[in-house]
């Protein structure tokens, strides 16, 4: 099932505070996972706001949600899921010391991230044209326009915060691509790629929740 790699010159990458590479890798992974727990609660504030207002203004949320473009939202979900596949393979390539594959996979992940952001941009523009942006020409024909505006405010806050995270992720991927091309991650020094991967997958998970919660509040 699994192939093991023998350590070549791994000890060269061990920080002075650590005893061996194992300790260093475990520490980095644990640190990243704790950071992700922090991120859960960072997004959590918005998820709480969403929950409370969806509980209070459920019907308006259903109405408002139907105006969002589910085709773009759904496609973007698929784009991120596939980017996560590339990222997982990138981590594998780093562990196996396959430099060319690593460069390609990291670049591919970054490209899919850009595809996601482009689609998001198209969608935001469409929202603007449809008068769905709060305070920027917002118009609502139905009842309770204030509550509908609240829904779109939350929509922009949640997707906006997520978009910031994707942008940061793309930046990280581009830097890692360059470093991988320079051969920085060879001979067992793959720690950075692995924890960057954890971040990327996390951003994917956030979107997995955002998609149904924002685009599919009720049935369409």
């Amino acid at each position: 099932m699994s192939i093991s790699i023998s350590p070549a010159s791994e000890e060269a990458f061990v920080g002075q505070q650590f005893d061996d590479i194992e300790q260093q890798r475990d520490a980095a992974k644990l640190g990243m996972w704790i950071f992700l727990a922090t991120e859960v609660l960072f997004f959590g504030g918005l998820f709480l706001g969403y929950t409370i207002y969806r509980f209070t203004y459920g019907h308006i949320f259903v109405e408002a949600s139907r105006k969002l473009d589910v085709l773009i939202g759904g496609t973007n979900t698929a784009v991120l899921l596939i980017s996560s596949l590339l990222m997982a393979f990138a981590v594998r390539a780093a562990k196996l010391d396959q430099r060319r594959a690593l460069v390609g996979l990291l670049a591919g992940t970054a490209v899919l991230g850009c595809v996601f952001m482009s689609l998001k941009g198209v969608e935001y523009h469409k929202d603007y044209v449809d008068h769905l942006v709060p305070r920027m020409g917002f118009k609502w024909e139905g009842a309770d326009p204030g509550n509908a505006e609240l829904f779109y405010w939350i929509y922009f806050a949640m997707t906006g915060l997520h978009a910031i995270h994707v942008t940061v992720g793309i930046g990280i991927m581009l830097v890692l691509t360059l470093l991988a091309w320079l051969g920085k991650f060879s001979h067992g020094n793959h720690n950075t790629v692995e924890i960057a991967g954890l971040y990327w997958h996390f951003v994917d998970i956030v979107w997995v929740f955002l998609f149904p919660l924002l685009y599919l509040v009720g049935h369409r």
Partner: peptide, 14 residues
């Protein structure tokens, strides 16, 4: 000693 997973695991996951 780091271990890697078979590619098919990732593909099936996706």
């Amino acid at each position: 000693m780091e271990e890697v997973v078979q590619p098919k695991v990732y593909v099936r996951t996706c």
